[in-house]
Each structure stands twice: as structure tokens, then as C-alpha cells.
Design a protein around this nucleic acid. Structure first.
Lengths: 130, 130
DNA sequence: TTGACATATGCCCATAAGGGAATATATATT
DNA sequence: AATATATATTCCCTTATGGGCATATGTCAA
């Protein structure tokens, strides 16, 4: 058996750096809102600077997995992000959130402790100088 | 050029479903705290029910990417999660959070609106009956 | 209809994945 | 030292990747 196809799920699809770039590009919004915009292939080709077939192929994968959506508009095809699929990944990884949260808390706590100690050392009578 | 190696980064590493399973298993904590625990290969083999070499190989990938950590303990090797690396993925995907947030808000708003309308319809004089 | 433009597809290549099974390595036990 | 236990490593095989390049398909314009 070989590696499972990239079109299996969102996880496999976003393993490719370029595919992530495409998603990133599609997420940019002129209005700055961040809701994502409709973009045609030419815009992506120009923006990313890759050969057109490459862009189309990657879009194909993203489309098959459902990470993007297409709409024909004249001879163009307008692609846009589909957050739903990304959510799969988001939900999975959020289960680990606490991991680094805990670590951060510990680090932070220790840092504060050290800071306090050094203050006490430099000016034992007035720990709250600052 | 072929697909970039699975050991390239966290994204590639977690593309494999089995690798995600391993991480999930390592995240489980007896104490329920969820901080992740030290687990040896045998425990994983038993828990996951896969052939040992397979487990070791996947652990190898995870280790190389830095998603897990090992410590030798007698003839065992204790593996544990390393959240830091997962954070890369977390941070990337969080940039898209708003995408489905917006959608959810819209859906929610519309649902509430519909609900309100139906209530008004069924009993125009007392919308708050329930 | 013919031609320009936009996008998708097909083909070839080098590369490597991931599973299976056998075996090597390291460490503890007797 | 000899053996058992825990884990890693190697080899083989099938499969699919992603890039490059050429070309097909689809659509608008003259």
C-alpha cells in the first residue's frame, strides 16, 4: 500500500505547502474583512507566480476535497474558500490546545517568579518599585 | 519532483491518519488532566492494535518532525507529545477561524429569525409562549 | 468561422510512501 | 554467557505524488 491520496481529506490536502499558499491567497479579502473572496485562476497565477497548470492542478485537489468552491463566470472560473472543510482540521487540533496552554502557563508562572525574585534581590525593601 | 517527505513538517506528518491516532493516544492522560503522558511502544502497540514495526516507524516520523519526544527507560522508550510543533498547524489554521465563525453567525441569526417568525405565526398575540 | 484568451488534462519522470515480514540492536534476567 | 524482552531497521512491493511541458477544452470577440 502506498501513501493515501492527497484527495482523501483536508489533512492530506493541506500537507502541500503550495496548497496552503493557495488557501491563504484565497483568504485575503480586498475589503479587509477576511471573509475570503472569489478569485479566478489567472489572478492566482499572477499572485503566486507559478505556472498555470500547476495552479489548476492544486486547485483540482482542493476542489475535490471540498476546501474550495468554483463558479463559472464567462470563461473564467471563480474559486473561493470553503471553511467548512478546514474546520475538520481545526477541530482536531483544538483538542491539543491545552497542551501548550499548560506549558505556557508554567513558563509564564516561572518567569514571573524569577522576575519577582530579582526584584526582591535588587531592592529587598521595596519589591514594588518598578 | 515527488511529494515532499512526510518528515518535512508537522503538516505532512499529521496527514497520515495513523499518525494522528498516535498523537491522540499520547494525549490521553490517566489522570484525566489531558496534559499527555509518557507511554512506551508496547503500550501503543497494545492500545492501537497495530503491528509493532508499524508503530515504531510512525513514531520515527513523528520524532523526526519533533511532534513527540523520547526518553529511554530501561529497555523501554517512553514517548510523549510535544505540543510546540502542533502549534504551527494550530496557528496556521486559526487564521481561517473567522471564516466559519461568520458563516455560523449568519446561520444562527437566520435560524433565530425563522424561529421568531414561526412563533409569531402560530400565536401572533403571544410570541413568548414556548 | 476563426482566432485569442482562460483553464483543465494528459503524459513522462524521479521520488518516496506505507504496509508486510524478517531481522538486527539493545537491555534486562537467569 | 545464554536467553528473553522491547524496539528499531531493512528489504520488497505497489501506488501516487508533483513538476514540466504539450495540448485539449471551453468561451468570448471580430
Amino acid at each position: 500500500m502506498a501513501r493515501s491520496p492527497t484527495t482523501t481529506d483536508a489533512f492530506s490536502a493541506i500537507a502541500e505547502p503550495r496548497r496552503r499558499e493557495i488557501l491563504g491567497a484565497l483568504a485575503t479579502n480586498d475589503s479587509g474583512g477576511g471573509g475570503g473572496a472569489e478569485r479566478d485562476v489567472s489572478w492566482l497565477v499572477e499572485t503566486l507566480g507559478w505556472p498555470q497548470p500547476q495552479v489548476s492542478k492544486h486547485l483540482g485537489v482542493l476542489l475535490e476535497v471540498g476546501l474550495v468552491t468554483v463558479v463559472r463566470k464567462g470563461r473564467r472560473r471563480m474559486y473561493s474558500l470553503n471553511g467548512e472543510q478546514l474546520r475538520t482540521v481545526y477541530d482536531w487540533i483544538r483538542a491539543f490546545e491545552q497542551l501548550w496552554d499548560h506549558k505556557l502557563q508554567r513558563i509564564k508562572a516561572r518567569a514571573e517568579q524569577l522576575e519577582l525574585k530579582s526584584k526582591l534581590k535588587s531592592n529587598p525593601t521595596n519589591p514594588h518599585q518598578n
